[in-house]
Structures are given as structure tokens and as C-alpha cells.
Amino acid sequence: MTEIGRYAEIATIVFAVASLTFLGLLSYHYYLNIYYGTYEHQDPTVIKVIGKQYVWLFQYPNGTTVPDKLVLQAGKPYEILVTSDDVIHALYFVDLGYKLEAIPGYTYHMYIEVNQPGTYPIYCAEFCGPGHYTMKGILIVTPSNSSG
């Protein structure tokens, strides 16, 4: 047992290190893709998002501000600027598997492009007070041909 046990132990450790390294490198590759998303989308439409207890304000390039409703076109790149007015929130698109914290004093960029038209929920994923659970919005993705 001792001899075999030692080899089995070393083999398991090596296997674990190898698989963790592989997973780490793979995920870091994707992470950098997300981080440098701007270079792939040359000319994204910029939408500003402000988190406030307990509402998401979406500011469109034409100057209108809409609470809790984000309308995007399918297949078009967007740059979303996330910030907060009061406490920390987190803008969370469940179906996109993506979230970033909205931190007062900071503005973070999020590059997204949705291909599938439909309606998706938006949640706040950082506890922001007793109304946290009411801080929900919807993401509406319209088909790209409908409005050009």
C-alpha cells in the first residue's frame, strides 16, 4: 500500500495540477477576450447605466433616460458603462452569464452583443438595501431587421 499509495498520490496531484492549469489558462484566455472586447467591436453604441436604490437608469445616446428597461438590437455591439449613485449594486444579465458591480465613483465598461431576440431579466446582484429584491429590470432584444 505504501509504495503504490505514494505513486497514486503523486499521480493524482500531478493530474490535479495539470487540469487546474488547463482550466486556468482556458478561462484566462476568455477573460482577456472579454476585457479587450472593445477591439473586436469597432464602433459600439454607448449606453450608460446608473444604479440607484432601487432602480436601474439606462441613458441612451439620444439623451433619453429610461428606468428598468434596456432595449438593444440583436447582433449589434454595445458598450455599457456601469456606475452607481449611492451604494454598490451589480448589473446582472442572467441569461448572458455576465455581471459587473456598479460602484459609486467608478465606471466600468461592459461590451455585449446579443444575437437572440427576446426578453431577458435584469437583476441587481449586490445587496443594496431592503428594496434590493425589487431592483429588477428587463432587457428587450429586438430583431435587427425590424428597425434597421
Binding site: 482550466l23 451589480a90 452569464g97
Partner: peptide, 16 residues
Amino acid sequence: GVFFPLIPLDYAFNGT
């Protein structure tokens, strides 16, 4: 726990 240091997965699962 292995999901969380894989940052793109953390973007999905952090805070859930």
C-alpha cells in the same frame, strides 16, 4: 469552488 477562480464563470456566478 473551482468555478470561482475561472473569471468568466465568476462573472456569471458571483453573487448568485
